Simulated assay, not measured.
Amino acid sequence: MDTAAARSRLEAMLDDLDRSIAILRGEHPGRDNSAADAGSALSDSDRVEAALGSLQRHRSGVQAALERIAAGVYGQCQGCGHQVPEGRLEARPDAARCVTCQAKHDRAMR
């Protein structure tokens, strides 16, 4: 994949993620003192926090991919050192590993 095209896609992804994070941070479910509403507010708050965590992890991955472009190692698998297949980078421009190494990484993280 052309690094200029990858950079452009990654920067657009970063902008989208920043907008989504800003929107979720602006959502603070109203806290009502009634017992019935307290459980609902907690559940909504938990969902927002989970979504924020996921978006922030995705943002970190996109930022790391931009840093790999700047370092001249974009597209090189961080696991085995081989080139990440072009199709994978097309589908996931923030991919840091080939499919095999990513599967190993995911298993190790469990």
Rank of each mutant, 00 (worst) to 15 (best):
D2W: 12
T3D: 13
A4S: 12
R7W: 02
R7D: 02
R7Q: 14
R9Q: 15
A12D: 13
M13E: 12
L14D: 08
D15L: 14
L17G: 02
D18V: 06
D18G: 13
R19N: 03
I23A: 10
L24T: 02
H28V: 15
P29S: 09
P29F: 10
G30E: 15
R31W: 11
S34L: 13
A35T: 12
A35K: 09
D37C: 01
A41N: 04
L42A: 14
S45H: 10
V48K: 13
L52G: 01
G53C: 06
S54A: 15
R59P: 01
S60A: 15
G61A: 13
V62W: 01
A64F: 06
A64V: 00
A65N: 05
L66E: 03
R68F: 04
G72P: 01
Q76C: 03
C77G: 04
C77D: 04
G79Y: 06
G81D: 07
H82Y: 08
Q83N: 09
V84T: 03
R88P: 00
E90W: 05
P93N: 03
A95I: 04
A96C: 01
A96F: 03
A96E: 13
R97M: 13
R97Q: 06
C101P: 01
A103I: 07
A103N: 10
A103S: 12
A103P: 01
H105V: 00
D106L: 08
